[in-house]
Measured scan of single mutants.
Amino acid sequence: MDVFMKGLSKAKEGVVAAAEKTKQGVAEAAGKTKEGVLYVGSKTKEGVVHGVATVAEKTKEQVTNVGGAVVTGVTAVAQKTVEGAGSIAAATGFVKKDQLGKNEEGAPQEGILEDMPVDPDNEAYEMPSEEGYQDYEPEA
């Protein structure tokens, strides 16, 4: 019985440690998101679009440190934060509304985080759909 109880105690310690790591990862992701939003706020009209992409990228980098179902929630929060940063930029006159959601080359930025393969159960990952990809044929 002692062996059984000791095993359960060790398992509990492992769960607590994993929860603490997840909590730490979420806190880091939130900190990076805040950094990115402050970065966007300090940019001029020309830099705002690039700044919004930076927020998304920093958040995406930190999301990889967070495991399990938390990833889905962090990704949703990050996307809403990026959308909010863009709205703030438009409201303050840093950028025109028609410039939001495009990178410096004018290509749409939507789907940055949505296409990231995420499995809350950590069982399997699927690649994003290939609808947006084109076949590449090298020139002879």
Rank of each mutant, 00 (worst) to 15 (best):
G25N: 12
E131S: 08
T33Y: 06
A76N: 01
A19S: 01
T44S: 07
K102R: 01
V52N: 00
V3N: 10
K34N: 03
K43W: 10
A17R: 15
A90N: 10
D98C: 11
T44H: 03
N65Y: 05
G25K: 14
V66S: 01
A89K: 08
G132P: 03
E83M: 14
A30D: 00
V48C: 08
E130K: 05
Q99I: 10
V26C: 04
D135Y: 13
H50Q: 01
A89P: 07
K6C: 06
G73Q: 13
E20H: 15
G25Y: 14
Q109K: 07
S87M: 09
A18K: 04
T22D: 11
A90I: 04
E57Y: 02
L100W: 10
D2F: 15
H50N: 13
V70Y: 06
V3T: 00
N103K: 01
M127V: 13
D135Q: 15
V63Y: 09
G106F: 04
V95H: 12
A56P: 06
K80A: 07
L113M: 07
S42A: 15
Q134K: 15
G51N: 09
V48E: 01
K102P: 11
E20M: 06
L100V: 09
Q99M: 13
P128W: 01
K97Y: 14
P120T: 04
G106W: 13
V118R: 02
T64P: 07
V16S: 07
I88H: 05
V3K: 03
K23E: 00
T92G: 08
N103W: 13
Y125V: 12
G93K: 04
E126G: 05
E46P: 04
A89F: 07
M5G: 02
A29C: 13
E35P: 03
K60R: 12
V82H: 07
P120Q: 06
T22F: 03
F4A: 01
E130D: 05
A56G: 02
E137F: 04
K12I: 08
T22W: 04
V118F: 05
F4Y: 11
Y39L: 03
V70M: 04
L113G: 13
G31F: 10
N122A: 08
Q109L: 10
N65M: 05
K21L: 13
P128R: 12
G67M: 01
V48Y: 03
A17L: 07
K80F: 14
A11H: 01
G73D: 06
A140I: 06
A30S: 01
E13F: 11
P138D: 11
Y136S: 10
E131N: 10
F4S: 00
S9G: 04
V55C: 07
M5D: 00
H50L: 15
A69L: 01
K6T: 03
Q134T: 11
Q79V: 03
K23R: 08
L100P: 01
D135W: 06
H50G: 07
M5Y: 01
V63K: 00
V71N: 06
V74P: 02
V16E: 04
F4C: 03
H50I: 15
G67R: 01
P108M: 08
E46M: 05
A78Q: 01
V16A: 07
T81A: 11
A30V: 06
E57C: 08
A78D: 00
G67D: 03
Y133C: 12
P108G: 08
K80D: 01
G67Q: 11
A27H: 09
G67P: 05
T81F: 01
P120G: 06
T64D: 05
Y133R: 12
V63M: 02
A91W: 12
P117Y: 06
V66R: 01
V63T: 05
I88P: 02
D2C: 10
L8A: 02
F94W: 10
A76R: 06
E61N: 03
G132E: 08
V3M: 10
Y125F: 11
E57A: 08
T33D: 00
K43E: 00
N103P: 03
E28D: 11
E83C: 01
E137A: 15
K10Q: 07
V118N: 07
K21A: 13
E131Y: 12
A124T: 14
E130A: 11
A90V: 12
A107E: 09
D115F: 06
E61W: 02
N103F: 12
N122G: 09
V66Q: 03
A89T: 09
Q24E: 05
V118C: 11
E104R: 11
K34W: 02
K102Q: 09
E137V: 12
D115N: 13
V55N: 01
G14D: 06
V66I: 15
K6D: 07
D2R: 05
M1T: 00
M127L: 13
K58R: 00
A27M: 09
V40N: 01
V48F: 11
A29K: 06
T81P: 01
E131I: 13
A91S: 05
Y125T: 13
I88R: 02
P138A: 07
P128F: 12
P108H: 05
V82N: 05
P120D: 13
T92E: 06
A56H: 11
K43T: 08
P108A: 09
T44K: 01
E46A: 10
A29R: 04
E137P: 08
P138W: 13
N122R: 13
K34R: 14
V63W: 08
P117A: 04
L8H: 00
G36P: 04
E105N: 13
T33I: 09
V70W: 03
L113H: 07
E61S: 10
Q62V: 13
A76D: 07
A76I: 08
K60I: 12
D98H: 09
G84S: 09
Y39G: 01
A76M: 02
T64A: 08
S87W: 01
K58F: 02
T81M: 11
Y136F: 11
G132R: 05
T72A: 08
Q79R: 01
S87Y: 10
V40W: 00
E126K: 08
P117G: 06
L38F: 15
A124Q: 10
T22N: 00
L100N: 10
A140M: 07
K43C: 15
P128I: 09
G84R: 06
K58C: 01
M127C: 03
V77K: 04
V48Q: 00
M127E: 13
A27I: 14
K80Y: 06
S42N: 15
A78P: 00
A19R: 03
E13H: 08
Y136Q: 15
P120I: 14
G36N: 15
M116W: 15
V77W: 15
A30E: 00
T81W: 11
E35Q: 09
E131L: 05
E35N: 13
K6G: 01
G25S: 14
N122E: 02
F4M: 04
T72W: 04
E20G: 04
S129G: 09
S87L: 15
T64E: 02
V74Q: 02
N122L: 13
